[in-house]
Design a protein around this nucleic acid. Structure first.
Length: 460
RNA sequence: GUGGUUGUAGCUCAGUUGGUUAGAGCGUCGGUUUGUGGUACCGAAAGUCGCCGGUUCGAGCCCGGUCUUCCACCCCA
């Protein structure tokens, strides 16, 4: 019985048209990465589990694809291991490798491992797939591409400024106008947590706060209470829920809230610098927005946090994210190296461009001309012409199977038609005799006999 | 991990309260047309109704499980 072939949940095949569109996005991003001085690296699709585990929080650990050990791994287990029924005990004993979950942690590992070869500040970009054992839904896959640009070895806030420009440059280039680059600062969140006496509950606090625009003020407060944050602390958040005005007005209000928090004020100072610098150099089509509720993302961020959302009206999760991490290489033994980076979510950007019909027509690249195949003699002459055309940069090919009847002719024409090949050349008995080529325009149906040089002229 | 949803021909989908031989459009293949595609007309092939089990005289339809799709939650690009 033939089994029905399927692909795993959350994965996809891409046809030629889809690949062309994906390449268009990737090429655009890559071009801007290079323009900003980033250099490419690649890392393996799987890492040692130790490298990944514990870097993304408990939820992240759950979503990491683990790779089963090879060999007779069960024989090495003790009865206690089986009895434990505990994933945290059992899993490490049968799995020592895992598929990468993002590009930032493998990058940190790379930096530490190659620190002596690297010139700091090190600016790298990386475009590779990542895997998450998540349940698929809109814009969410188990295999998807991230396009990352990071700088390590510089604490300068000018890096943040440049990364904002980079976001703006890429989305402007993709004609995706009006994206919102939301920015926040972990230090401000720490400051607020300190202020409300929830310093030890920073993650719980930020996760709850992040949901503000989705579930509303009351539910956020309820969640904070549930997580054990004191009522008098929550009441101090009141001004935060009503934070309005433009970037600098919001900054001013935050200043008055966080007067007693050293770390909070530091965060404000950073944001202020970034905003002022961006204002003075300007951005093209994106909008930079301060969003104090922005907290999602990895818990290794220590300074700026970025998130990019699609233009208004497009229902899609974030299409990019990033931030500054002061200590990521520290985990792997290299201290005092600060990094900051951003990521583009290729697959989501694709969906957004598709929804807004923003893919240019020109990216549908196909063969420009196909030669109809009649017989051995004709094929030889055709192949010579095909070679010359290719030398001139014309995408040309010969249909491989010869015409043996009128049906075959029809079949070959049909083939050209279906592949949207705009020109067909016929070299049959007569053309062979006259040393001519019959060039047929598949759109107009017009057909002209000409010499080889005229053919090359016409097609290049 | 939680809740809901979907699955019938290659594709998009019909299929009545459970009742003979499961349909359509598109596509494919063949013909009208043996050196000319797209249009038209004629014809044909194509399905274990996701899979496993149950209820029933009888299941595409009802029930349970499982996989898959999509959506929401959690979390995230």
């Amino acid at each position: 019985m033939a089994q029905k072939p399927t692909i795993p949940k959350g994965t996809r095949d891409f046809n030629a048209g889809e690949v062309a569109k994906r390449s268009y996005i990737i090429d655009t991003i890559k071009e801007q990465f290079k323009l900003f001085g980033f250099e490419p690296i690649e890392t393996p699709s799987f890492e040692n589990s130790d490298t990944l585990m514990g870097k993304y929080g408990d939820e992240g650990d759950r979503l990491i694809f683990k790779i089963l050990n090879s060999g007779e791994y069960l024989k090495k287990l003790s009865n206690d291991d089986f009895e434990s029924k505990s994933e945290s005990v059992f899993t490490p004993k049968i799995s020592e490798k895992a598929l990468r979950y993002d590009l930032t942690v493998p990058f940190a590992r790379y930096v530490v491992q190659h620190q002596n070869e690297i010139a700091f500040p090190f600016k790298r970009y990386q475009i590779q797939p990542v895997w998450r054992a998540d349940r698929p839904q809109k814009g969410r896959f188990r295999e998807f591409y991230q396009c990352d640009a990071d700088v390590v070895g510089s604490t300068s806030l000018l890096q943040e400024v440049e990364l904002i420009q980079l976001y703006d440059a890429v989305f402007s280039e993709l004609k995706l106008e009006g994206v919102a680059i939301k920015i926040n600062n972990r230090k401000i969140l720490s400051g607020i947590a300190e202020l409300i006496g929830a310093k030890d509950k920073l993650i719980d606090f930020t996760v709850a706060l992040d949901k503000l625009d989705k579930i509303g003020e009351e539910k956020v407060k309820a969640e904070m209470r549930r997580k054990g944050i004191q009522e008098d602390g929550i009441s101090k958040l009141e001004p935060l829920f009503n934070l309005t005005g433009n970037f600098s007005e919001q900054i001013d209000k935050l200043k008055s809230i966080l007067t007693t928090s050293e770390i909070g004020l530091k965060g404000i100072e950073e944001l202020e610098f970034i905003n002022e610098t961006i204002s003075s150099i300007g951005i093209k089509t994106a909008r930079l927005q301060l969003d104090v509720t922005l907290a999602r993302g990895l818990n290794y961020y220590t300074g700026a946090i970025f998130e990019v959302s699609a233009p208004e009206g497009v229902k899609m999760g974030s299409i990019g994210g990033g931030g500054r991490y002061d200590d990521l290489t520290g985990i792997f033994g290299l201290n005092d190296v600060s990094g900051v980076g951003i990521s583009f979510g290729l697959d989501r950007i694709y969906l957004v461009l598709e929804e807004l019909n923003l893919f240019p027509e020109a990216i549908k690249e196909t063969t420009k001309v196909i030669f109809i195949s009649f017989g051995e003699q004709e094929a030889l002459v055709s192949l010579q012409a095909v070679s010359k055309l290719r030398d001139c940069g014309v995408k040309a090919e010969l249909y491989p199977d010869a015409v043996t009847s009128g049906k075959q002719m029809k079949k070959q024409m049909n083939y050209a038609n279906k592949r949207n090949i705009p020109y067909v050349v016929l070299v049959g008995e007569e053309e062979l005799k006259n040393e001519s080529f019959a060039l047929k325009n598949m759109v107009s149906g017009e057909q002209i006999n000409m010499s080889l040089s005229a053919l090359i002229e016409a097609l290049s």
